[in-house]
Simulated assay, not measured.
Amino acid sequence: MVTNRLLILDDEAAIGTLVATVARKVGYEAEATTDFGSFREAFDRIEPTHVVLDLQLPDTDGVEVLSYLTARGANVRVLLMSGFDARVLDMVGQVARDRGFDVIATCRKPLRVPELRDILRRNAHEQPLALEPEALDQALDEGQIFVNFQPQCRLSDGVIVGFEALARWRHPDLDLIAPDKFIPLAERSGRIARLTHYVFDQATDAAVRFAACSPNCGVAVNVSPLDLSDPHLADKFAQVCRDKGVAPDKVTLEMTESAAMSDPVSAKEALVRLRLKGFRLSLDDFGTGYSSLVLLRQMPLSELKIDRSFVTDCTTSHDSEAIMEAVVAMAHALGLSVVAEGVETQEVLGRLAQADADLAQGYLMSRPVGLDEACRMLTGSGQMAQIS
């Protein structure tokens, strides 16, 4: 069993004690320190798996502590907290991610105990998965991998206009395995093409059923950077659509910026051919990379998906709200539609509608569901969201 060991650095002893108490109640070993020297001594002694770090300290600051952890080669999950400006807190979070740390949260002080407890409980170290590449072959052969569908709703009236196809793996011994665990395995082992085509096949089967319920309903499928290196990808996808009678313009292929930039020449050729075949192209997680504006000019995109971090914070962070509004305006000026993902509250939904975003996707409307349930959604009112 993995032991979660939490080390806290906060010059306010009362806060350190509070965090340690909450952590122990959810199964961590926890120790609090109030200065950098005692933190370094405790780090050597307990070898923590998690660190809670206050950014403003009398003898140092959070960035210096992160530099120390980097020099140590520390493999720790990090929770950052401060009463300082939210923008600075977010920037330190990005510094930590750039250094390779898993930042589980950035929290403004004063901390709320329920929020802290939920964060720590969600981010306990998991047992490492003993997955071999051959297990992925078996999963595909035996149907252990299945596809759920999350609705995308039109913000003008809340009507479902499409679903994103999301792969899941129900392992016979390890139960449900998240995509962020098995997709990297597929990419490393050379099996990503097989996985992508498996999901595409399932998604286009679903598109046939969606069309019977709602003729204008589409489906979105994620593609990997490695998929775009296949010069025959467009032909293969187009043939599947012809065989099933699915119009390519009802299929949106989603990729991240890293996918489009991993091999720009091959990616550009693949994307242009996909567009010429009639497929829609979506740039996922827009706003988190460094060359997004170049992509908008060079790639034959149909839509942008605003990264969930800006969506989630658009009602509480002026910066996130400004970025969200700017992305919507810029996308529309370029003739692109805008999807906001990660919508979880009615307040966020209303703000997106005011900003004139096109589509919304998130738990407020629905979690990912099976195909039968997705079809029931379409044959009902077809409306999932009330826009206020």
Rank of each mutant, 00 (worst) to 15 (best):
K268P: 00
L283R: 13
V251H: 01
K250A: 15
A260G: 10
D284E: 08
M255G: 04
D285S: 11
D285L: 13
C241Y: 07
S282Q: 15
Q239V: 08
S282I: 11
P248N: 11
M261D: 11
A260P: 14
R242S: 06
R242T: 13
V272S: 06
A259W: 13
P264D: 03
D284P: 05
V251L: 01
L274M: 00
S282G: 14
C241E: 05
T252W: 03
S258F: 03
R280L: 07
G278K: 02
T256G: 04
K268D: 00
L274E: 01
S258L: 10
S282P: 15
P264W: 04
Q239W: 00
L253N: 08
R242Q: 14
T256Y: 12
P248C: 06
L281E: 02
A267L: 02
K277H: 12
V272K: 08
S282V: 13
V265C: 00
A259M: 06
L271F: 06
S258E: 02
R273E: 06
S266E: 02
L271M: 15
D284M: 06
D243S: 09
C241D: 04
V265L: 09
A247K: 05
R242E: 12
E257D: 10
K250R: 15
F279H: 01
K250H: 14
T256L: 11
K244W: 01
A260Y: 03
V272Q: 06
G245W: 09
D263P: 00
V272R: 12
L253E: 10
L274S: 00
K250C: 15
F279M: 07
V251G: 02
V251W: 04
R242N: 04
A260I: 07
R242W: 08
R242M: 07
L274Q: 02
D249S: 12
S282H: 13
L271W: 01
A270Y: 09
S282E: 14
F279N: 03
P248D: 10
S262V: 10
L283F: 04
D284H: 06
D249T: 10
S282F: 05
K277W: 01
V265G: 00
D263R: 14
D285R: 13
L274P: 02
C241N: 09
K244P: 07
K250T: 15
